[in-house]
C-alpha cells in the first residue's frame, strides 16, 4: 500500500503511454484504422491540454482562447503548403514561431488585466483570429484549405499513419517531460508562488507579469505545435479549429483530468474525446448529454481524474 502510493503516479504514466503505444498494433491487427486516427487526434489535443495546464494550472491564468494557437499553428502549415513549401521542419518551425509571436501579443495585452477581464479578453482575441481566418478568402475562407501532402522528416514518412502516430506520441512524451522540468524549476516555483499569493510574490521581489507572460508564450508555442500536428494529421485547416467551443473543450480536458498535474490533462483529453465518440454513436444529440455531464463534473467532481488515479497525492 505504502509503496504503491509512491509509485502509483509513475506506474500510471507508464501504463498510459504503454497503452497509447499499443494503439497502432491493435488497429493493425484488427484492421481498424479509425482508432489510429482517433488516438492520434486525442494525443494532439492532449498536447494542447498540457500546454494549457501550464498557464491554467500552474499560472492561475484562465485562458479561454487556446484554440487560437491551435489555429495559428495549423494555418502556418496550411498556408506554407499552399505556397508549395514541402519541408516539414520549415512548416512546423514557422508554426511554432508564429504561435509564439501571437501568444506574445495576446499575452502582453491580456495579462495587464486579471480575473473576468482576462477570460473575456483571451476569448475575444481568439474570436478575432477566427474571423480573420474566415475573411482570408485566398486561403479558403470559411471552407478551409486542404493540404496536398503531409511531407517527410528525414526517414520518417508522415503520409504513413503509423509513423505519424509514433512521432506524435514521442512529441507528447517529450513535451510532458519538458513541462515537468519547467514547473519544477525556479521559473515554475516563481510562477506558482505568484498564482497562490500574488501579493506575497511581489513583496519578495518577483514581478508576476513577466513570469506569466513567459509561461503564456511557452504555452502558446506548444499549443501551436499541436495545431501544426493537427493540420498535418487531417491534411486540412479551417477556421473551425479556432472555434471558441474548441477553447472550452481544452479547458474541460484540463479540469476533468486534474489541474496542475500535467499528466491529468492527457487523461482528460483521452476521456473527453472517447466519451464524445461513444455518445455520438448513441445519439446525434449527444451534446444534450455532454452539457449536463460537464455541469455535474464542475459541481461534484472538481478534483479531476488524476488525483483519483495517482492516489490523491496532488489533491
Amino acid at each position: 500500500m505504502r509503496v504503491s502510493a509512491i509509485d502509483r503516479p509513475r506506474i500510471a504514466v507508464f501504463a498510459l503511454f504503454g497503452l497509447l503505444a499499443l494503439v497502432p498494433v491493435y488497429s493493425g491487427l484488427f484492421d481498424q484504422p479509425f482508432y489510429l486516427t482517433l488516438f492520434a487526434r486525442v494525443m494532439i489535443f492532449a498536447l494542447a491540454a498540457v500546454s494549457l495546464d501550464l498557464v491554467l494550472g500552474f499560472g492561475g491564468m484562465v485562458s479561454f482562447g487556446h484554440a487560437a494557437y491551435l489555429g495559428v499553428g495549423a494555418y502556418a502549415v496550411g498556408i506554407l503548403a499552399y505556397h508549395g513549401v514541402d519541408s516539414v521542419p520549415i512548416r512546423w518551425g514557422v508554426a511554432i514561431l508564429a504561435s509564439a509571436a501571437v501568444a506574445l501579443f495576446i499575452g502582453a495585452v491580456s495579462l495587464r488585466t486579471s480575473g473576468m477581464y482576462f477570460i473575456m479578453i483571451t476569448l475575444a482575441f481568439a474570436q478575432m483570429l477566427f474571423y480573420l481566418a474566415v475573411s482570408l478568402k485566398a486561403y479558403g475562407g470559411d471552407d478551409g484549405l486542404p493540404i496536398a501532402r503531409r511531407g517527410t522528416i528525414g526517414p520518417i514518412d508522415l503520409n504513413n499513419g503509423t509513423q505519424l502516430y509514433y512521432l506524435i506520441l514521442i512529441l507528447l512524451a517529450a513535451t510532458l517531460t519538458l513541462a515537468h522540468r519547467v514547473v519544477g524549476s525556479r521559473f515554475g516555483r516563481a510562477l506558482e508562488g505568484a498564482k497562490w499569493n500574488e501579493r506575497r510574490a511581489i513583496a519578495l521581489g518577483i514581478a508576476p507579469y513577466r513570469y506569466r507572460l513567459v509561461a503564456f508564450v511557452i504555452s502558446g508555442t506548444v499549443c501551436g505545435l499541436a495545431g501544426a500536428l493537427l493540420a498535418t494529421l487531417t491534411s486540412f485547416v479551417s477556421p473551425s479549429y479556432m472555434a471558441w467551443t474548441r477553447s472550452g473543450e481544452v479547458i474541460v480536458m484540463v479540469v476533468l483530468g486534474g489541474m496542475a498535474t500535467l499528466t491529468g490533462p492527457i487523461i482528460g483529453a483521452v476521456v473527453l474525446l472517447v466519451l464524445e465518440e461513444i455518445l455520438a454513436t448513441l445519439t446525434i444529440h449527444w451534446m444534450l448529454i455532454l452539457g449536463p455531464i460537464l455541469i455535474l463534473v464542475v459541481l461534484f467532481a472538481r478534483r479531476g481524474l488524476w488525483g483519483w488515479i495517482a492516489g490523491d497525492r496532488h489533491g
Partner: peptide
C-alpha cells in the same frame, strides 16, 4: 461561490445543452 473557472465550465455546459435542446 465558486471560482471563475468553475463558472466558465458550468455555463459552457449550459451552452452545449441549450444549443442541442433547440435542435431537438
Amino acid at each position: 461561490d465558486r471560482d471563475h473557472l468553475d463558472q466558465v465550465l458550468g455555463t459552457f455546459g449550459l451552452i452545449l445543452f441549450f444549443n442541442e435542446l433547440v435542435r431537438v
